[in-house]
Simulated assay, not measured.
Amino acid sequence: MKDIAYEELQAFEGRAAEEAGRGKDPVNRPMIRHWCEAMGDGNPAYGGADPVAPATMLQAWTMGGLSANGGRFRAHDELFALLDGAGYTSVVATDCEQEYLRALRPGDEITFDAVIESVSERKTTKLGTGHFVTTRMDVRVGDDLAGTHRFRILKYAPVKQRPKGERPTGEQPKGGQPKGERPRPVVNRDNAGFWAGVAEHRLLIQRCDGCGELRFPWLPGCNACGSPVWDAVEASGDGTVYSYVVMHHPPFPAFDPPYAVGLVELAEGVRIVSNIVGVPYDKVRIGMSVRLEFRRVDTELELPVFRAVDVAGGAG
């Protein structure tokens, strides 16, 4: 891995990645329907006589398909070639932000411009060392700005994989308490109430003030009626395993795989993703009864987890 002068990377900031791009198709009912079916979103606003497209489809209207992207983003190609040549050969998407300014309706013709908004100085993460690259896309209908999409990736040189069986310095053998801190949750204005509840050992569910619909995870508005007004109710803590996966990824310092991550259906009817504890990972089953508890995972962080109920030979 070789150093790149940061000024050389900064020169890409403000460069157009796409100019006067056009959506491959106008906004249309079939794509809205497919999106809503995939998301399980039955909001009548998306299928009535005068429907609007779900706001979160913003980027979908700009996509050119698998065969239509070659050569479109030349500035990205040049930047990534520079980073690849310096040894930053891996890439991971880190986050995206969208701002919605105008509803999109069937028949709207989409145009868009994309720009490399920023390239960070060199950063060191648990994955490796590299640079964050943020791209902003402005989506328009005619002269109206419909929304803005920011997409951020990390181009990095991965940490060298340890030889099989070797553990990081200070990490206890499998079965002991893993060392290191968990990644911190992103707390924002939309979910701060949830994390405040966790700090009090309460699992809070949003309840729409307009129609009474319960929702989880926390959202700024109701999927059922669109109302932005809500309060919160405390979950009883009873649930069942609706689905689950077993994580086998390489051992990061704060984790000790394999372990089970479940999609738990609460007694109130909403679902939450969390760890299943109190039973070996290979004994977790769909339909298993679980009970909420709060577990301290490091010196500063507690998380809601679910303990298997009435399981013989449980562990953990």
Rank of each mutant, 00 (worst) to 15 (best):
H131P: 02
G212T: 00
A315M: 08
S289E: 12
D108A: 08
F80D: 03
Q177G: 03
E97G: 06
N69T: 13
V277H: 01
R74I: 11
C225R: 00
R202G: 07
L266E: 01
M1R: 08
E234N: 06
D143E: 15
T129E: 13
V92D: 11
F306M: 00
G64W: 08
F73N: 14
V273N: 14
G70I: 06
E166N: 04
L9H: 11
G170I: 00
V229S: 10
Q206R: 03
K155D: 10
R15K: 07
A68S: 15
D238W: 02
V290S: 12
P217K: 00
A196Q: 10
V311L: 02
R215P: 00
G314T: 08
R29Q: 13
Y100D: 04
R136V: 13
E117N: 09
L303T: 10
V246L: 03
A93C: 08
C211G: 06
R271S: 07
A75N: 09
H76L: 09
C211D: 04
D298K: 03
P30I: 04
Y100V: 06
D25Q: 14
Y244G: 11
Q98N: 09
I153K: 09
A45V: 11
A68F: 03
E166T: 14
R74T: 11
Y156G: 07
F73Y: 14
G180F: 05
A232I: 04
F151G: 15
H149Q: 10
D138H: 06
G21W: 01
G64L: 15
T94D: 10
E166M: 14
G212K: 00
E265Q: 12
D95H: 12
D108V: 03
E302R: 02
E302G: 08
L66F: 10
Y6N: 14
C208W: 00
R140S: 08
I276R: 02
R307M: 05
S243T: 15
P251D: 11
M288Q: 13
L301V: 02
N28R: 08
K160V: 12
G14N: 00
G21M: 04
K174R: 14
G40S: 05
R207D: 05
V233H: 03
L104G: 12
A260V: 07
H34T: 09
R207N: 09
D77P: 01
H248P: 03
A38N: 04
T89S: 14
G165N: 03
G176V: 03
G180T: 04
A254T: 02
S236R: 11
L204C: 12
G226E: 04
E97W: 01
E97T: 05
G21A: 10
Y242E: 15
H76M: 12
D138R: 15
Y156T: 04
V27C: 06
W218T: 11
T135I: 14
A315Y: 03
A60C: 09
E8S: 13
P250S: 14
P228T: 12
V279E: 05
D41A: 05
Y6M: 14
E99H: 07
E293P: 04
V246S: 12
A75W: 02
G287M: 00
R105T: 15
S274T: 11
A17S: 12
R150A: 10
R184Y: 05
G71Y: 04
W61Q: 09
T125V: 07
K160Q: 13
A49T: 08
V186I: 09
E78L: 09
A199D: 10
L104A: 13
E18R: 05
